[in-house]
Amino acid sequence: MEINWSSVIGIVATPVIAFIVGVLYGGAVRKITARVQNRYGPPITQNLFDIIKLYSKKTAIQHGVMQHLGPVFAITASVTSLYFIPVIKDSPYFQNFSFNGDLIFLLYMMVFGSLGMALGAGQTGNPNSAIGVSRGLSQMVGYEIPFVLALVAIMIQFKTTSLNELLAVQDHFTNWIIFQSPLAFVAGILAFLGMMHYAPFDVVIAPAEIASGPPSEFGGKYLGLMMTSGSIFAFVKLVLFVDIFLGGASDFITLIIKTFLLYMIPVLTGIVSPRFRTEQSILFFWKWPTFIGILAIIVVVLNG
């Protein structure tokens, strides 16, 4: 069997790049938040150092097998989703397995990690974890509906469920789906606010309320693995949205610019927002975002 070295390099390099970008974005968010709140803030590399520190620490306790495997589920979902998304358009290094899956597969793959994490958090027996999971799953039913509406609108407009084919459609910047299907973009980006779990939709980890919720019993290497997975997963969601709506990126600089600008939407909303209660957040997603999503589908059907 002939080994395709460019894809091997891609498989090794993609998670590493995703991790570094994701973790630096995390640091940048902390810095930006601090500046908005008129604080000095930690250096941009703070999250990276935190993770390195966590990996070098001894983990003292665990509550059983499911907790042990919770972070493993999370990282599996993050990296697998990453492999099925074309990170850089038409690059032989970063296609990975994106030709072997489609959008609906990705939808489900991305849930895999949350489910595993929820199971892991469940075994710790910490009531705060369980409360966080209950809130997180409930909120997911909220934002998943406008998100799926947006995706369905795009799928029927371009008659494909494959990300690569959607990228091929957006060959010129006037053909970006954000311009071809603006309503779907609005519904999608509102759902995206919920998916990123920044305020006003941060009821899951709810700092200062339920002691950071699901991850509250995880320490040491468990937390390190979870933060790694979280950084990669943030990158996955950003690249997915850039690929779907903003025409992807044909080089690394474009990718950084696009993802960073996109990331700023939930972050900047979050800094100036208070927190929704769970049912408020669910009902928020079921009102305007859902309505806009339905409108998006109707427009596509009418344009036929």
Binding site: K58, T59, A60, I61, Q62, H63, G64, H68, P71, V72, Q123, T124, G125, N126, N128, A211, S216, E217, G220, K221, Y222, L225
Partner: peptide, 18 residues
């Protein structure tokens, strides 16, 4: 995670939480 945590961690009950 198993190799890294196998020796160092010990099991604690679900009462022993934060």
């Amino acid at each position: 995670i198993t190799i890294k945590n196998y020796r160092t961690t010990r099991y604690v009950t679900t009462k022993d939480i934060h």
